[in-house]
């Protein structure tokens, strides 16, 4: 199991990028009772048989990884959600894309911590691909949104440590502002 929900989010978005998506919409909503995440992509999608196999930890789509045959991303998500009284919903259509959404009960004693979300978001925005990532983040009545292209336009290459460090400061300040008095 991943150590934090931020790690799970990174994993699920990477799946979208690896499914040749050109656009991923990531929505993260928190409130005192629930944490809700939706990852919607326009990647190659899956038919019903492929979708069923994606839940099997001992299956990875042929060609996705040249060095191994297991795929733990979705099974780890489902395990975490099932163990903490939440719910997962995955829909997919071949050639149109996949939407993975889940919610967790914030009061459940076994829910993993949210983790270092600013760092996770930097990692996603900097993951090497031409995929646009749109983030919408809500906490109660506060929110912010940003896209990968906006960050690149503001900073330049997201492979330079100085720019990655500035991105991290950006997300950290945005996250802190979400938890200010509402």
């Amino acid at each position: 199991m991943h150590a934090s929900i931020a790690d799970v989010i990174v994993d699920i978005v990477q799946n979208s990028i690896e499914a040749n998506a050109t656009h991923v919409e990531l929505t993260i909503v928190t409130n005192p009772d629930r944490l809700m995440v939706t990852v919607k992509d326009n990647g190659k999608g899956m038919d019903a048989t492929q979708l069923k196999r994606a839940f099997d930890p001992f299956y990875s789509e042929p060609g996705k990884h040249d060095k191994r045959r297991v795929g733990l991303g979705l099974p780890l998500l489902i395990q975490m959600v099932e163990q903490t009284g939440g719910q997962t919903d995955i829909t997919s259509t071949p050639n149109l894309g996949t939407t993975v959404s889940f919610w967790c009960d914030q009061h459940h004693p076994d829910i993993p911590p949210l983790g270092d979300l600013p760092l996770a978001l930097v990692s996603l925005m900097a993951y090497p691909s031409n995929c646009e990532i749109s983030l919408a983040r809500f906490n109660g009545n506060n929110s912010y949104d940003v896209t990968k292209s906006e960050l690149v336009e503001a900073l330049g290459s997201l492979e330079e440590p100085a720019n990655l460090t500035l991105s991290r400061r950006f997300f950290k300040s945005q996250e802190e502002s979400l938890y200010e008095e509402q």
Partner: peptide, 27 residues
């Protein structure tokens, strides 16, 4: 930063490289 890397703490490794390179002004 695959599933295995993330589960083993690759995100902290990523952060550590950024912090150390920045602190040492390696460009």
């Amino acid at each position: 930063m695959g599933t295995c890397g993330i589960a083993a703490g690759a995100k902290n490794t990523f952060a550590a490289f950024l912090d150390i390179l920045d602190a040492k002004n390696i460009t």
